[in-house]
Every structure is written in C-alpha cells, then in structure tokens.
C-alpha cells in the first residue's frame, strides 16, 4: 500500500534504476502470475500476461506516465486490461493437460470432479463482464479488500461492491443452477 518507501521506489522506477526495477519485478510478478493463472487457467498465457504487464509499465515510464502511487493496483489494472483484450480477441479457451496436474488442495475430493469444476469456473469467469470479473477475482480469489479493489479498478467502493454482487449472482446462475439441473 502507499507509503514513503513505495513513493521512493516509484521515484527510482521513473529513473529506470536497475535495483528498483528488479525489486518491483521480484515483488509483484509472482502475484500477477497467480492472478492471471486464476483467470486464464493456463500457465503459459499467464506468463505472457506478466511479461506484457511489465513491458507496458516500462513503456508508460518512458513516456513520463505510469503510476504516481499504488503501484500494485496499477500493475493489476494492466494485467486485467491485457486479459480483457485477450478475451475480446476471442482467444480459444483451452487449459493444457499438464496444468491438470495441479494437486487437490485437500484429500477429500475427487480429482476428476475438481478438474471439471476448474474448467467450468474458468469458462464462467470468462463470460462475466470485464468489470465483474475483475471485482470478483480481486476480492474473492486474490483476497483484496474493497478499498484496494476500488483503487485497482478506478471505481468507487460502492460500485465495486455492486459489481461483486452482480458477478456472484451471475456465477451462481451459470455454475450452481447448471450443476443442480445436471
């Protein structure tokens, strides 16, 4: 979150300070990878998302733009935009086989069923509006509070909460009712 240290870091970033750039990459790239992976379900695409996010950060800095504060929110916004563009281009939805080797978080469930749920969830996330998806993922998967999510989305907290509610309702319609019917 915004603090004097981050402000100093951002200042150094604008000067293309090597140590600052490395710090930023090391600090935020794992989280961005996880975020992209949760939305896309594909590690290779998630890596592409991370690369492009940091590349766009550099381009913004080169033009004297880029974040003045809240670097993390800025980076997640870029990643979200990249993913939204990818979905708009109609990129095929495919989770590679090796990705299925992600192990169950506990030993009580069935692996096959768990994999099906993952695929269904990825497909459902993709069908949400871009803002609903961002609001849902930041809040319920990344564990951000509403103020942080609002900063990343550049929307008021109330609007973010409304997007979450509508997103959850849409997911319930898509996932839970489908499951009940089947």
């Amino acid at each position: 979150m915004e603090n004097p240290k981050e402000r100093i870091l951002l200042g150094k970033l604008r000067e293309f300070d090597t140590a600052a750039l490395e710090t930023v990459y090391d600090r935020y790239s794992p989280g961005l990878y996880a975020y992209a992976c949760r939305v896309l379900g594909d590690p290779a695409s998630a890596e592409d998302c991370v690369s492009e996010t940091f590349s766009r950060l550099l381009k913004a800095l080169r033009f004297g733009q880029g974040p003045r504060d809240h670097l993390q929110a800025y980076l997640y916004r870029i990643a979200h935009n990249w993913i939204t563009d990818l979905f708009r281009r109609g990129a095929p939805f495919e989770i590679p086989l090796e990705e299925e080797t992600v192990s169950l978080p506990d030993t009580t469930g069935d692996q096959a069923e768990w994999n099906i749920r993952r695929r269904q969830m990825h497909a459902a996330l993709r069908r949400l509006t871009a803002e609903q998806r961002q609001a849902i993922v930041l809040r319920y998967l990344e564990g951000w509070d509403n103020e942080e999510a609002a900063r990343a989305m550049e929307r008021p907290v109330g609007a973010v909460k409304a997007l979450q509610q509508r997103g959850i309702a849409a997911l319930r319609r898509m996932l839970v009712r489908e499951e009940d019917v089947s």
């Binding site: 978080p105 749920r117 319920y140 959850i168 319930r172 839970v176």
Partner: peptide, 17 residues
Amino acid sequence: DPKLEQFFRAVNAVPAR
C-alpha cells in the same frame, strides 16, 4: 454459498511457476 465456494476453491490453487 457452499456449492459456489467449491468452484472458487477449484481455481484458487495455481500451478507452480
């Protein structure tokens, strides 16, 4: 919603980088 929560848990774990 417990049923919906299962779907969230399913995507929460990500493959190691």
